[in-house]
Design a protein around this nucleic acid. Structure first.
Lengths: 198, 198
DNA sequence: CACTGTTTATGATTTGAATCAAGTCGGAAT
DNA sequence: ATTCCGACTTGATTCAAATCATAAACAGTG
């Protein structure tokens, strides 16, 4: 997260986009740095038979879609708003200008990339080789500690739908539902009024 | 990749390690920046029943295990040498010192993190939702263009074993072997003397 | 060359998540 | 209150990859 004042100082504009719109497409070239002011955004892929895979869900103050600004590649996934949003958008050149003049912002960005990589590494290993229940628990635990910054003794009220959990873990809704039931029985999670608590 | 001269100037030492040794363990705290001089290193996880998942294989001039230096997390995977290696090792503080005094090196590191994230994003989406053949092709194509920097018309001689392909894609050896046979039949790859060409 | 260990190969069987089909539930809108 | 729609649920069935078992091909070594 880069200080909004700094963003504005470097000529960032604020976009207002309604729920369900595309911000950029899979494969396209990165031209802007994006940071969320309000609302939520997801980055996703669709495979040939239309199944969605969610790379990540992003919340206020988080940036997204930075990697292709640094590496010479197209976006590995598209970005779509999941609520109405306000987003800071800073052209690539101005962004690099900012990083050069404010090294501490660059270190902050490195931290963001690093922790994203950490999440991806965990999920890759889980998705590839663990059973559904374990995948889900890992996703929830990651969300709890790294997104919501809660302590282990706190209780997280998961705000993902079953479908989103499925798309984040590469499972199917029915499997997620059945796995969650099993996890509840084992006492790993609680389900109150269909809401998952962990 | 950071210029070795610069590394040495900032007091990096060179480690010589034999094949099959551990460089750091899963979950441990990052204290050094590592960059390969000669040899190969892999980062991997093991799940409860001993199945290995390879997060990545790293070659000369590549660095590895940087994310936990930036984000406050333990290593998401362990690192192990797969050949005899010589490795530059720079203490964390000196590494940050270097980045501060040489912003261009910092941009280079950002590029590395970014392209690694790109690879992870691709593989995550593949692993979660595509068939074995597709996963393998994607892995080979990524390796071809991004690791070996070959053009599409060039032919890559894959130097992974079937087992390594399995561990990188989250499949099992037998499945990889059968999928490769099928891919050969379809003309997607060639197999000459058990070596895969793509 | 014979011996050893690793990698590749192939067939038979099992298994668990995906798929298919048909619901229910709950909240928002009319 | 009734309709409507998205989210959640449950059971039966299928199917592809994992598993198990076994062996051939090859690379390296004394």
């Amino acid at each position: 997260m880069i200080d909004p004042k700094l963003l504005i100082q470097f000529k960032a504009e604020i976009l207002e986009i309604e729920r369900g719109n595309i911000i950029f497409d899979y494969g396209s070239k990165a031209q802007f740095y994006y940071q969320i002011k309000t609302g939520e955004v997801k980055m996703n892929n669709f495979n040939r038979d239309g199944k969605e895979f969610i790379q990540g869900i992003f919340y206020p103050d988080q940036s997204f879609g930075e990697p292709p600004l640094f590496a010479d590649v197209g976006y590995p996934a598209g970005a779509e708003t999941i609520t109405d949003v306000e987003i800071f958008r800073l052209p690539k050149d101005d962004f690099f200008d900012l990083l050069k003049k404010h090294p501490e912002a660059h270190f902050k960005i490195s931290e963001v990339l690093a922790s994203r990589l950490y999440y991806k590494a965990i999920m890759a290993s889980e998705i590839s080789s663990q059973d559904p229940e374990h995948r889900i628990v890992r996703l929830l635990d990651y969300t709890k500690t790294h997104i919501h910054k809660l302590d282990p003794e706190d209780v997280l009220e998961v705000d993902f739908t079953r479908q989103q959990i499925a798309d984040l873990t590469g499972l199917r809704v029915e499997t997620v539902i059945r796995a969650c039931k099993a996890l509840e029985k084992k006492g790993e999670i609680q389900i109150k009024k269909r809401k998952i608590l962990r």
